[in-house]
């Protein structure tokens, strides 16, 4: 086990399932013997606002929050949110972006424009940025809601933890009827990344 604390930031839009994904991530990390802290915001932001969940693990963790420039992995469930949270990515950090757009109200009302060519900008600013088709994969699996599990699979792979046993944790965190589709989504997420 490495002694350094690893920082994972999950960002997206309220209602996208970041909370469940981070729950499975933290429970899994605990079962592998890490000290883990996780922090998220409930309440108002859950109504379609910008949301973030901080997950930190290692031998001993103090702060439950990640500061700017310190996230080893940022996974954005929505494209524009990747831009918003980019300053949190560390110098050598890895950005994973779901190729999925959700328009915020200022854009719907025509008061602002949804940023163009986000991928290009992100890749230039954070080399190694991975744009993944999590939304599309979930659709193909037959349930757009399991997008969060697809992304979780991608995160686990990125963290090099895909060899570990996530099955028990996943089964304990989703309703019995939804286990199979979530497992498939999780597995699919792992294959979305190169290598």
């Amino acid at each position: 086990m490495n002694t350094k604390t690893t920082n994972v930031l999950l960002v997206g839009v309220g209602g996208q399932g970041t909370i469940l994904a981070s729950k499975i991530l933290t429970e899994g990390l605990l079962s592998f013997g890490y000290d883990v802290k996780m922090s998220e915001i409930h309440g108002m932001a859950q109504r379609g606002g910008s949301v973030s969940t901080h997950v930190r693990y290692g031998e001993k963790v103090y702060s439950p929050v990640i500061c700017r420039g310190e996230a080893d992995v940022v996974v954005a469930f929505e494209k524009m949110e990747a831009l918003r949270w980019l300053p949190y990515l560390s110098a050598g950090g890895r950005l994973i972006v779901n190729n999925h757009e959700i328009f915020p109200m200022p854009v719907i009302l025509g008061q602002a424009e949804y940023p163009r060519e986000i991928e290009k900008y992100l890749s230039a600013s954070a080399p190694g940025t991975l744009v993944v088709e999590a939304a599309k994969t979930a659709d193909e699996l037959g349930n757009p809601r399991v997008m969060n599990m697809v992304l979780l699979g991608a995160v686990v792979k990125t963290l090099g933890l895909d060899g570990r046993d996530w099955g028990g944790t996943l089964r304990s965190c989703v309703p019995p009827g939804a286990v199979e589709i979530n497992e498939r989504a999780f597995a699919a997420g792992k294959t979305l990344l190169p290598g």
Binding site: A45, C67, R68, G69, E81, Y121
Partner: peptide, 18 residues
């Protein structure tokens, strides 16, 4: 503090909604 990586233009706000 760590400088982070600035976004070129800050993206539009995403206020909570009905």
């Amino acid at each position: 503090p760590a400088p982070g990586r600035e976004g070129e233009v800050p993206p539009p706000n995403r206020p909570p909604l009905l």
